[in-house]
Nucleic acid binder design. Structure first.
Length: 331
DNA sequence: TTTCATGATTCTTC
DNA sequence: GAAGAATCATGAAA
C-alpha cells in the first residue's frame, strides 16, 4: 500500500469502509443480500466502538500524524479545489450584492439630520428655520430650538453608542469565527477564500441588525421633527403694536397694498416678526378686505384719521422747527 | 361650548 | 416666485 492509499484509508477511517456505506441501510442490506456473512457487520460495529474507546491523547496523536503526513498538503489542496468548484461557485454569484438602496436612504437621511457623520448644524439649522417660521417671541423660539437640539443630540448619542456596540460585537464574533476556522482548516479543507466568505456572511448579518438600528433612529428623528414642526401651527396673535403698524401701512397704501421687499423688511423689523409673516399677513389682509370691504370700512376710516393726525403732527413739528424762535434755540 | 378672528399652510394661477 | 383663494388650526371672547 503506498502512502496516498494509506492516507486515504486514514481519512476515511473504519479500515476502508466508506462512511456512506455505514450510514446507508440499503447498502448494508445489499451487502447482506449478496451473501456476506453477518460476522462482517459485527466487525464493523466493533471497530466503531474501538474508535470511541480511543483516548484523547491517542486521537490527538493520530490527528498529528495525519497533519504531518507528506501527502496531506496535496490532498488538502485537491479537496479545497473540489469544494470551491461545487458549493462556492454556486453561492458566489448571489453574495456579491450591490449596496442596499434602503441602507443608502437611511444613511443619507441620518447624515442630513446630523445624526450620523460629523456633528454639524444640520439638525440645529432645521430647528432654527422652523423656529423662525414659528414666529413666536424670540424667547419661545430659542427654548424650542434648544429643546430640539438637546433631543437630537440625545438620539445621536444613543445611535453612536449602539453602533459602537454592534461594531465591537461584530468584530469580536468575526475574530472568533476566523480563529475557529483557521484552527479547523488544519484538519478539514477550508480555504482562505471560504473564511473570507464566512466573514462576509457575518458582516451581512450584522449590517441587517445595523439597518434596524438606523431605521428606528430615523423613526425617532421623524417623530421629533414632526412634533417640533407641528409647533409652527401653534398660532400666536401678533402683539397690538405690530398689528397697528401693519394696518397703518395697509390702509395708507390701500390703492396698492403690496409692500416691496424693502418695505416688508422694514415692517418685519418694526413688528419683531419675519418677512414671510409680513407677507402672510398682507396676503390674508388683502383677501379678507376684498371679501368684506363693508366690515373693514370702519377700521379703514380709523386708520385714515390716525394717519392724517400723525401727518399733521409731523408737519406742525416741522413748521415749529423752522420758526425763528426755534432757530434761535439751535443757534 | 360655540363662534369669530387670525396666523399659517397648501394648492392654483399667472 | 408672488399673489389669490381655500382651508386648517388655534386663541380669545361671548
Amino acid at each position: 500500500m503506498d502512502d496516498q492509499t494509506r492516507m486515504m484509508t486514514g481519512l476515511t477511517g473504519l479500515g476502508g469502509l466508506a462512511q456512506a456505506d455505514v450510514g446507508d441501510p440499503d447498502s448494508v442490506r445489499k451487502q447482506q443480500s449478496l451473501g456476506q456473512p453477518q460476522q462482517d457487520i459485527g466487525d464493523i460495529l466493533q471497530q466503531i466502538m474501538a474508535i470511541t474507546d480511543e483516548s484523547l491523547d491517542e486521537a490527538q496523536a493520530r490527528k498529528h500524524a495525519l497533519n504531518c503526513h507528506r501527502m496531506k498538503p496535496a490532498l488538502f489542496s485537491v479537496l479545497c479545489e473540489i469544494k470551491e468548484k461545487t458549493v462556492l461557485s454556486i453561492r458566489g454569484v448571489q453574495e456579491e450584492d450591490p449596496p442596499d438602496p434602503q441602507i443608502m436612504r437611511l444613511d443619507n437621511m441620518l447624515l442630513a439630520e446630523g445624526v450620523s457623520g460629523p456633528e454639524k448644524g444640520g439638525g440645529s439649522a432645521a430647528a432654527a428655520a422652523a423656529a423662525a417660521a414659528a414666529g413666536g417671541s424670540p424667547t419661545d423660539s430659542s427654548i424650542e430650538h434648544s429643546d430640539y437640539r438637546a433631543k437630537l443630540a440625545q438620539i445621536r448619542q444613543i445611535y453612536h453608542s449602539e453602533l459602537e456596540k454592534y461594531e465591537q460585537a461584530c468584530s469580536e464574533f468575526t475574530n472568533h469565527v476566523m480563529n475557529l476556522l483557521r484552527e479547523q482548516s488544519r484538519t478539514r479543507p477550508i480555504s482562505p477564500k471560504e473564511i473570507e466568505r464566512m466573514v462576509a456572511i457575518i458582516h451581512r448579518k450584522f449590517s441587517s441588525i445595523q439597518m434596524q438600528l438606523k431605521q428606528s433612529t430615523c423613526e425617532a428623528v421623524m417623530i421629533l421633527r414632526s412634533r417640533f414642526l407641528d409647533a409652527r401651527r401653534k398660532r400666536r396673535n401678533f402683539n397690538k403694536q405690530a398689528t397697528e403698524v401693519l394696518n397703518e401701512y395697509f390702509y395708507s397704501h390701500l390703492s396698492n397694498p403690496y409692500p416691496s421687499e424693502e418695505a416688508k423688511e422694514e415692517l418685519a423689523k418694526k413688528c419683531g416678526i419675519t418677512v414671510s409673516q409680513v407677507s402672510n399677513w398682507f396676503g390674508n389682509k388683502r383677501i379678507r378686505y376684498k371679501k368684506n370691504i363693508g366690515k373693514f370700512q370702519e377700521e379703514a376710516n380709523l386708520y385714515a384719521v390716525k394717519t392724517a393726525v400723525d401727518a399733521a403732527n409731523v408737519s406742525a413739528q416741522a413748521s415749529q422747527a423752522n420758526s425763528p424762535a426755534t432757530c434761535c434755540i439751535f443757534l
